[in-house]
């Protein structure tokens, strides 16, 4: 797999971060994973601000794995800002969360999420989900063309 394809994982729970990374690793997904531990950090990375000031924003992650319950800026708010910005409005965003509440799914899709995946309790199932995600978003899916400014 091409190393240039970066995955942005927005996850505040270190256990979930470790398990997600393990699941990706177990499925031989070797792409770089950038981890943002709250919504603000995720936006900083995407827009090249704050901690990530000076980052080449022409290089966007292949996919964003976005948790909903996040410190500072909530996942749905991150999604709203991503879709509102010209640079990121076409960015593939997969909501990866614990909840299967109707309100979250409606809001998620309403704000333009490309996919909504629930993290199962059974880690075997999670492994399976990670495998599918990697296969689909990193191999099968053609990302939108890279924007050159």
């Amino acid at each position: 797999m091409e190393d240039t394809k970066v995955i942005l994982l927005v996850e505040d729970n270190p256990d979930d971060e470790a398990l997600t990374l393990r699941a990706l690793n177990k499925n031989n997904i070797k792409n770089d994973v950038v981890v943002a531990r709250d919504g603000a950090e995720a936006l900083d990375y995407l827009f090249g601000s704050g901690k990530y000031a000076g980052r080449d924003t022409a290089l966007m992650p292949q996919v964003v794995l976005l948790d909903l319950k996040l410190p500072k800026i909530e996942g749905l708010e991150v999604l709203r800002r991503v879709r509102a910005d010209e640079r990121t409005k076409l960015l593939p965003v997969v909501i990866l969360t614990s909840s299967n509440e109707d309100q979250d799914r409606i809001a998620g899709y309403g704000l333009g999420a490309n996919s909504y995946v629930r993290k199962p309790v059974d880690f075997s199932q999670f492994l399976d989900a990670a495998r599918h995600l990697g296969l689909y978003w990193l191999v099968l899916n053609e990302a939108p063309p890279v924007r050159r400014s």
């Binding site: 256990d15 979930d16 393990r22 319950k69 299967n100 309790v121």
Partner: peptide, 18 residues
Amino acid sequence: VSHDLRAPLRSIDGFSLA
């Protein structure tokens, strides 16, 4: 409950499997 109660379970299951 939907968000927070399941997260520790995922950790227990995930790290047990690990």
